[in-house]
Design a protein around this nucleic acid. Structure first.
Length: 408
RNA sequence: GGGGAGGUUCCCGAGUGGCCAAAGGGGACAGACUGUAAAUCUGCUGCAUCUUGCUUCGGUGGUUCGAAUCCACCCCUCCCCA
C-alpha cells in the first residue's frame, strides 16, 4: 500500500508540513497516533471540519490512530486565528452540549470501535490548571516577541486582542504536550490557519520533554476566488441534517463553480485520482456530470447512501423533466389551516424558504415564485383546491429552490 | 492614570435637529442570458394588516412639537502619553 503522505499530497490536501521527509518516513514505518482539535463553537460540525474528518479517515485507512480532541477547555478561551473580532463567550452547558453533538457526527466518518480512534476532551486537563504553576511551567517556554510575529495575531494586533485570546496558543500547545505524554501522540494536524498554534505545540514538546513531534496543515476549503466555501444564505453548510437538509446539502455541491469541482472531488471524496482526472477533461455542460458525482459522493459520506439517493432522485426529478418528486423538501399544512384560506405568503413563511413576508412580496412582484409551473403575480393569492393535485402543490422559488406543499 | 478618535442597517461606510428606514459600495436574493456554472445587464435588500403604521443608528435617561444628529451618565473599541 502506498504512503498516506503521498496520497494526501497528490490530492492537494496538504498545505504545510514541519518536516517533510521525517513525517513521510514515520508514516511509512509505524502506526502513528495523531490528533486534530475541534472547538465546540456550534452544536454541529460544518464542511470546514468535514475536510479534517476526511483526512483523519485517510490516515485511519492506512493504519494510523486518530485522536479527535474536542475543545471542552479551549472552547472557554476562543481561538483568535483568522478572526477579526473576539469570539462570544460560551457557557459550560453550551460547550458540553456542543461536544456531545460533535461526537455523534465524528463517529460517522471515523471508526471509534476497539480503540481504533480516540475521542478526548481537553477539559480533562485544562479546566483544573493552577494559574501560577501553569505560568511557571508552560508560560516560561513561550516568547511573547515571537508570538507577536505570528501571522495569526497580526491582524488582531490592529484591531485589538485580549490577553484571554492571546493565551489560546498556550492552551493548544499544552494539549499536544499532554497527548504526547499520555498517548504517544506524534503528529498534530489542522487547517492551515492552525499553523502557528501547531508550531507552538511542537516547540513546547521539544523544550519540555526533548521529544520530536510533527505538524501538518491542510488546505482550507476555498473557492477559486479565495473565499471560504461552505457558506449558504442561512449560514454555514452544516453536517447535521436538522440544520442543513441532505437535499440542500446535495444542491450546494451541484451549484459549486465550474472551477472548483475537480478540487472538491479530490479533497472531499475518496474516489481514485484516475477517475477524477478523467472528469477533469470534461468541457462546458458536461461538467455537470462531475458535479453530480461530487454532490452524490459527499452527501453519501455525510448522510449515508439512502439519503444521498433520495437527494439525487429529488434533484433529478425536479431539474430533469417532471416537477414531481417524493423526496423534495416537503411541508405539511393541516386541513384546518387550508380551509381558513392560507395565503401564498403564509405558506412560503411556513415552508421556511423566505425569512419575512416582505421578502415574499418582493419575490412575487419580481416573478420569483412559481406555483405548479405557473408564475404567480398576485401578492395576496389564496391557495385553493385547484392548486393541489392529489393533495399536493409544488412551489418554486427562483430557479433552483423547490418545495412541496401537502395537505394533511 | 492622562489625552485624542470612534461605535450607523449582513459588511464597509456617508449622514451632525425635521426633506431619514437612513447616500454610496460590497455581499445576498430575484429577473434576463446560460449548463441548476461563470461573466454581464436589470431589479431588490428593516418588519407588518405595505399609498399607512411600527421598530432600528453601542446602552440608559433627558432637552425638544420633533433626535442617528443636542445634553448627562454608563459600556465597548482604537491611537498617543505614563
Amino acid at each position: 500500500m502506498s504512503n498516506v503522505y503521498d496520497i494526501l499530497k497528490e490530492r492537494g490536501l496538504i498545505a504545510q508540513v514541519t518536516h517533510e521527509d521525517e513525517i513521510r518516513a514515520l508514516l511509512d514505518n509505524e502506526k502513528v497516533t495523531f490528533y486534530i482539535g475541534f472547538d465546540p463553537t456550534a452544536d454541529s460540525l460544518h464542511v470546514g471540519h468535514f475536510l479534517q474528518m476526511i483526512v483523519m479517515r485517510h490516515m485511519q485507512m492506512h493504519g494510523h490512530r486518530p485522536i479527535a480532541l474536542v475543545g471542552g477547555g479551549t472552547g472557554h478561551i476562543g481561538d483568535p486565528s483568522g478572526r477579526t473580532d473576539m469570539r462570544k463567550m460560551m457557557t459550560d452547558d453550551v460547550i458540553n452540549h456542543n461536544c456531545e453533538c460533535f461526537k455523534k457526527q465524528l463517529s460517522k466518518i471515523i471508526d471509534f470501535s476497539d480503540g481504533k480512534a480516540l475521542l478526548i476532551n481537553n477539559a480533562d486537563w485544562l479546566l483544573n490548571l493552577n494559574y501560577v504553576e501553569f505560568l511557571r511551567d508552560i508560560g516560561a517556554c513561550f516568547s511573547v516577541n515571537k508570538m507577536l510575529t505570528a501571522e495569526c495575531f497580526k491582524q488582531r494586533l490592529e484591531k485589538g486582542l485580549s490577553f484571554l485570546e492571546f493565551n489560546y496558543m498556550l492552551m493548544q500547545s499544552y494539549d499536544f504536550l499532554m497527548l504526547s505524554r499520555s498517548y504517544n501522540c506524534k503528529l498534530e494536524l489542522g487547517g492551515d490557519d492552525q499553523w502557528s498554534n501547531i508550531l507552538g505545540g511542537i516547540e513546547l514538546c521539544r523544550r519540555k520533554d526533548r521529544k520530536q513531534v510533527y505538524g501538518m496543515t491542510f488546505t482550507l476549503l476555498t473557492n477559486s476566488e479565495g473565499k471560504k466555501m461552505g457558506k449558504t444564505q442561512s449560514g454555514a453548510l452544516w453536517l447535521d441534517p436538522e440544520k442543513t437538509s441532505p437535499y440542500d446539502f446535495y444542491q450546494y455541491w451541484i451549484n459549486v463553480d465550474d472551477a472548483d469541482v475537480i478540487k472538491c472531488l479530490k479533497l472531499l471524496t475518496f474516489l481514485p485520482l484516475e477517475e477524477i482526472n478523467k472528469m477533469a477533461k470534461y468541457k462546458d455542460a458536461e461538467i455537470n456530470k462531475a458535479k453530480k458525482v461530487l454532490a452524490y459522493e459527499v452527501t453519501k459520506l455525510v448522510h449515508g447512501e439512502a439519503e444521498a439517493d433520495k437527494a439525487r432522485e429529488a434533484a433529478e426529478a425536479v431539474f430533469g423533466s417532471g416537477m414531481n418528486s417524493e423526496n423534495m423538501p416537503t411541508t405539511e399544512i393541516s386541513k384546518d389551516e387550508f380551509e381558513n384560506k392560507i395565503s401564498i405568503l403564509d405558506a412560503l413563511v411556513k415552508m421556511g424558504i423566505i425569512s419575512s413576508k416582505g421578502e415574499g412580496r418582493r419575490l412575487i412582484q419580481q416573478g420569483g415564485i412559481t406555483l405548479n409551473g405557473n408564475k404567480l403575480s398576485d401578492v395576496n393569492y389564496i391557495l385553493s383546491d385547484s392548486d393541489f393535485d392529489g393533495g399536493e402543490a409544488t412551489i418554486k422559488k427562483g430557479k433552483k429552490v423547490f418545495h412541496r406543499l401537502v395537505i394533511k
